[in-house]
Design a protein around this nucleic acid. Structure first.
Lengths: 198, 198
DNA sequence: ATTGCGTTTAGATATATATCTAATTATATA
DNA sequence: TATATAATTAGATATATATCTAAACGCAAT
């Protein structure tokens, strides 16, 4: 997961002093002492910030005698920006397909919690199993159809008498969407799956 | 100085929990309780992060009964990214103002693409020139005024009959900001300029 | 009214970090 | 070798912040 890299990138840019350093470097190479003077900071402070920027690969260094010159690393500055946007806007990239543990657990839940007539014996207390049971029921609804609350209740009753709780769970776990008393199925990408809850 | 805004933008993105929230929101609206569950965090922690993201204008909220739904504010996420790069790479801010190539290109575009009555003969296909034409038009709007979509259309029509395209380009290139059908001018620092697009 | 549920606020705690001074290291020169 | 300059490291301090629990708030249903 490149999450840590993206965090490091933004951490590096989330300090006014470091941004001012980058601004100064945008005009060309500058050495540490000069940065300290221009920013009215001590040299150790400059070293501190330079280390942060170097760790995020936003600057490069060159040593000449006992003087260290800094300059921008423009490719990485831009790359971090692009990687962040890609990360944030990457809708559902991390979806995974059928796994054996999941399907066997699913079978076990359907066998043990649902009677032959289709009724739900009890709402599973264990989170994973509850989600499986909820999903099993919700998949019998029509995508794209707008239901009233009354209709949802009537739909749930054949499964379980406590329709209010189950209706709430449908919303809480993103199986359904509610607005102004109207209920509608969410797309499956939005459903809460126990694999995503770590 | 917009330094503080850029710092705030990166601070908002410099936490792994907040990035995970944005990732979840990239698939669509999610409410607070669901976020807390999916992330294994307490609700107050979600509120805390939501406040940070809201302050940086990276998310928007909608309330239905006592449930708050969050969603991304993609324009601002992108705008912050562009503003940062623009800030860092603003070489020699003082002398970049009046360069001959830019101003002559601007004059040429204004001369060749706009008729004497002010109408835009055609939308420039070349990127640089299109931005110049868009900026020329958008500068005739009042900063700080909130326009309806109808008003924007009526504003554009005297320039060009394809107001829908131009209205979209205003948003796409960050000249304007849109929320709930309301349009407002962005500050010029946010505008996309062709010098930064290489 | 009372209860239930989702959210927010308040307050506490632990960790992270920006900055400084003082001491140490690295490099070059007299 | 001794000295000067630049950089780094070590250690101290103050501020910021991510997280939690407990309490308060807002809204809807009974």
């Amino acid at each position: 997961m490149q999450l840590d890299k993206i965090v490091a990138y933004h951490k590096a840019l989330s300090d006014p002093t470091r941004l001012r350093i980058l601004l100064l470097l945008s005009k060309g190479e500058v050495h540490g002492h000069a940065l300290a003077e221009k920013l009215n900071l001590s040299q150790p402070t400059v070293t501190h910030h330079a280390a942060k920027l170097r760790e995020a690969a936003l600057i490069m260094e060159r040593r000449d005698k006992n003087t260290v010159y800094f300059k921008l690393n423009p490719e990485f500055i831009q790359a971090g920006s692009e990687a962040s946007l890609k990360f944030i806007f990457a809708k559902g990239v991390e979806e995974m397909e059928e796994e054996s543990p999941e399907s066997s657990l699913k079978e076990s839940v359907l066998r043990n919690f649902f009677a032959k007539d289709g009724r739900l014996r009890q709402i599973p207390a264990q989170y994973k199993k509850k989600l499986i049971a909820l999903q099993y029921m919700v998949e019998k609804l029509e995508p794209g159809v707008v239901y009233s609350e009354k209709e949802i209740n009537e739909f749930i009753k054949p499964f379980h008498e406590d329709y209010a709780t189950i209706r709430r769970e449908f919303i809480m776990h993103q199986f359904m969407y509610r607005e102004n008393e109207k209920y509608e199925l969410n797309p499956p990408e939005l459903w809460t799956h126990w694999e995503n809850v770590k």
